[in-house]
Design a binder for these strands. Structure first.
Length: 571
RNA sequence: GCCCUUGUAGUUCAAUGGAUAGAACAGGACUCUUCUAAGGUCUUGAUGUAGGUUCGAUUCCUACCGAGGGCACCA
């Protein structure tokens, strides 16, 4: 990448001037008209050199210009002592050719080559609804997986599903209360799963409101752990199968394919064994009949957590140890990334500290990436009210809204449902991925998800438009051809930055850099589109414009793909 | 009480320690005989408070104020 070359160039110039290079950065000027790159190295070195920054910048610029490579148009001093660097038109002509040539591969690199990365995300619970948190985890995890894969990492996706624990017992308690209503196989799967979700709500409310119910639910929990009650196990296994089948449909819609599925029930015994083993070694201790880990003994910012409860059952903590030990044994990743909501951040700090004492080499490669929660503009949606917006209902609602917009569009009726799904998923995913993953998302139920402006559909619309232009160019037999002497415009300059944006997004596990970038590119393209006739038989500039349009389309589609968003042909 | 995260236009979000803090939505004014108007053009408007570090702070540090989350047998 150019940026590395520039850095070397500047380092050499500094050395020739006998200046200590130190750590300096090369950035993009806020205003593109100033140049493609800028460095403030003169400003930071001025003090050491005991000269005024402007003079120093002049000296550095002069030195730089002595060995100016051909891909640079000019390097000049501006402002208080910035050195602005503008790349040459041949550079951009070449870069545009690279985009057209690499196509789908443009933006990928081998920065992460040799790294095997395991990404765990989504993590829904069978017998419970797929809620918005799972949607967020899925959107973010999928995008991070794609980003690091694009940089050459070998990526494995894992989904960890909680099929044991108190939440399951709550659902089963509800089922036992409504045994007569238990749906048959003839009922559509979505309705069967909705029944399970309703049973969970009932059980969950009862658990909090009634001490008797609480005791009953705890007893059910124990029975499931032991597998002792035949009737209970029948409903449990049936419900679990339905849930998992149903979830599979959601993953497909969202564009995720997992390489590994791990159920809590598969690793909980491992978790118990690990805790018991290290209980003897003194890492865990008994307290009030439970087995706990004293986090604060290792780090004052940590706290005590229960790994095995006083009934002898593993908590989420013990299972987590089982899971991560299995990851290490089965997959042996170089990077193990776990994506969950930030309400689990402190929990993970404690559990990972325990894990560090048990399997240090595995802990070293494990990191927890937390994302914010989705909150609602019109007050919180309490899960107890039963009228919560679930991940599924959200997709459905948005799909309906998109479908309505499609009425009267020049498009075959049979294609509309598919397009509505793509557009709806793009709207939801973009709204999650456009902002820093760590902060909460405010979901305004009245406005719902915008299809205008800074949105997923805006990006799709831009890509579709570019596609329509290319189709027209084909029809009129205008072949795209980059003009080597074309004046580089904001679009080409922006296009050429794509690989850098992707690399940064991957390294920082921050998809929003890509989302923001795509919106900026779309805005530039739409503006250009509005006052430029791209396809025009008589215009000698047309082939260049068509080629540029193709490059825009390639980058948009590639960028959307990195966000886990499909681009439709029409919309 | 302690810990974590977080405070930027009316609202929802951007801004690898750099130059004039960018968008979108909402409001106002325009814009389809032309490649998809889910578009484009113009327009009003912001860094919680007080210090500190720095040539330079929205960004780093400290305190305060506000918001969200977490802190033993849920996940």
């Amino acid at each position: 990448m150019v940026i590395q070359d520039l850095k070397l160039l500047i380092q050499k110039a500094l050395k020739n001037l006998s200046l200590e290079a130190g750590d300096f950065t090369i950035e993009h000027p806020a205003d593109m008209s100033r140049g493609d790159f800028a460095t403030s190295v003169a400003l930071s070195l001025a003090k050491q050199a005991k000269v005024n920054p402007r003079e120093l910048a002049d000296r550095i610029a002069t030195e730089l210009n002595l060995a100016k490579p051909s891909y640079i148009e000019k390097m000049e001093v501006a402002g208080a002592g910035f050195i602005n660097i503008t790349l040459s038109r041949t550079f951009f002509a070449h870069e545009m050719e690279v985009i057209l040539k690499r196509g789908k591969l443009y933006g990928s690199s081998n920065e992460w080559r040799g790294t095997k990365a395991l990404v765990e995300y989504t993590d829904p619970n069978p017998l419970k609804v797929f809620h918005i948190g799972h949607l967020m985890s899925n959107a973010i995890g999928e995008s991070i997986a794609r980003l690091i894969a694009s940089q050459g990492a070998k990526v494995r996706r894992m989904c960890y599903q909680g099929d044991v624990g108190l939440h399951i017992a709550k659902t089963l308690w509800g089922i036992m209360r409504r045994e007569g209503e238990f749906p048959s196989r003839r009922v559509p799967i979505a309705d069967r799963v909705a029944f399970l979700g309703a049973c969970y709500v009932q059980g969950s409310n009862a658990y909090e409101d009634s001490p008797e119910a609480k005791t009953e639910i705890e007893a059910i929990n124990k029975k499931i752990y032991e597998g002792s009650d035949r009737k209970l196990m029948k409903y449990y296994k049936l419900g679990r199968t339905w849930s998992l089948d149903h979830l599979e449909g959601i993953y497909k819609k969202l564009g995720t394919r997992f390489d590994y599925y791990v159920l809590e029930s598969e690793i909980m015994h491992d978790g118990v064994a690990i805790v018991n083993e290290y209980l003897e070694k003194g890492i865990f201790e008994k307290s009030d009949g439970a087995v706990v880990f004293r986090g604060e003994a290792h780090d004052p910012k940590l706290h005590t957590r229960v790994f095995i409860n006083s009934q002898g059952l593993p908590t989420y903590e013990a299972k987590e140890l089982g899971l991560n030990t299995r990851k290490w044994k089965r997959v042996r990743p170089d990077r193990s990334i776990i994506i969950t909501a930030n309400e689990q951040s402190d929990y993970f700090r404690v559990v990972l500290k325990a894990f560090e004492l048990i399997l240090p080499e595995a802990r070293k490669v494990t990191e927890h990436v937390s994302h914010g929660m989705m909150r609602f503009a019109d007050g919180k949606m309490g899960s107890r009210k039963g009228n919560i917006i679930t991940g599924e209902s959200m997709i459905e609602d948005v799909e309906k809204m998109v479908f309505e917009k499609l009425v009267g569009r020049d498009m075959p009726e049979k294609d509309k449902a598919g397009v509505a799904e793509i557009v709806a998923v793009s709207a939801i995913k973009y709204s999650i991925l456009k902002q820093t993953t760590s902060s909460d998302i405010i979901y305004d139920f009245d406005k719902s998800i915008s299809f205008e402006g800074d949105s997923g559909p805006y990006l799709l619309y831009t890509a579709v438009r570019a596609g329509a232009i290319l189709a027209k160019a084909d029809k009129e037999k205008i072949k795209g051809k980059i003009a080597p002497d074309a004046e580089p415009d904001a679009i080409s300059r922006t296009l050429a930055r794509f690989p850098e944006v992707v690399s940064r997004a991957a390294n920082e596990k921050a998809p929003h850099y890509v989302a923001t970038y795509l919106t900026e590119l779309s805005s530039l393209f739409n503006s250009w589109y509005a006052n430029t006739t791209i396809v025009s038989k008589d215009d000698p500039l047309s082939p260049h414009r068509v080629a540029l349009t193709r490059a825009v389309r390639i980058v948009l589609v590639n960028g959307l793909d990195l966000l886990g968003i499909k681009a439709p042909e029409r919309m």
